[in-house]
Simulated assay, not measured.
Amino acid sequence: MCTYATVKTAIEGSAKGPGGRWFAVTDGVVYFDHPVHAMAEHTLNIDFTAPGDGPSARVAVELTAASARTLIAAIQAALDSAPAVLTV
């Protein structure tokens, strides 16, 4: 079953893309659906993109639901461990 559950957000950061080239990412897209490559029926898929730089300015991740939840907890723990003044 396709969920088509997609969330788009503006982001600020950098990603290492094809050929090891770093580029600024401006858009994040998160969706839960069939993966392209991961060996799972459904995955949480995250795309970090810079649309203005063309289709190659993209980094994609496909995670199982369990791995995505673990990553959420790890991100929260890392942010919580840093001094508040640095995470504004």
Score class of each variant (00 low, 15 high):
residue 1 M to T: 06
residue 1 M to L: 03
residue 1 M to S: 09
residue 2 C to N: 15
residue 3 T to I: 00
residue 5 A to E: 14
residue 6 T to R: 08
residue 9 T to S: 13
residue 10 A to M: 03
residue 11 I to V: 15
residue 11 I to K: 11
residue 13 G to C: 01
residue 14 S to K: 15
residue 15 A to Y: 09
residue 16 K to V: 14
residue 17 G to K: 07
residue 18 P to Q: 14
residue 18 P to G: 09
residue 18 P to F: 11
residue 19 G to S: 03
residue 21 R to N: 11
residue 22 W to G: 00
residue 23 F to L: 07
residue 25 V to I: 11
residue 26 T to F: 06
residue 27 D to W: 06
residue 34 H to E: 12
residue 34 H to N: 10
residue 34 H to I: 02
residue 35 P to H: 10
residue 35 P to E: 04
residue 35 P to L: 01
residue 36 V to M: 05
residue 36 V to P: 00
residue 38 A to T: 06
residue 39 M to W: 05
residue 39 M to K: 09
residue 41 E to V: 05
residue 41 E to D: 14
residue 43 T to C: 15
residue 44 L to Y: 07
residue 44 L to M: 12
residue 44 L to I: 11
residue 46 I to A: 02
residue 47 D to L: 09
residue 48 F to E: 02
residue 48 F to G: 00
residue 49 T to A: 13
residue 50 A to T: 05
residue 50 A to C: 08
residue 51 P to I: 04
residue 51 P to L: 05
residue 53 D to S: 14
residue 53 D to T: 06
residue 55 P to S: 13
residue 56 S to D: 14
residue 59 V to S: 00
residue 61 V to N: 04
residue 61 V to C: 06
residue 64 T to K: 05
residue 64 T to E: 06
residue 66 A to Y: 04
residue 67 S to F: 03
residue 67 S to D: 15
residue 68 A to M: 07
residue 68 A to H: 05
residue 68 A to Q: 11
residue 69 R to M: 10
residue 69 R to Y: 04
residue 71 L to T: 09
residue 71 L to E: 03
residue 73 A to G: 13
residue 74 A to I: 01
residue 76 Q to R: 14
residue 77 A to V: 02
residue 77 A to M: 01
residue 79 L to D: 08
residue 79 L to T: 12
residue 81 S to Y: 11
residue 82 A to E: 09
residue 83 P to E: 08
residue 85 V to L: 08
residue 87 T to C: 10
residue 87 T to M: 13
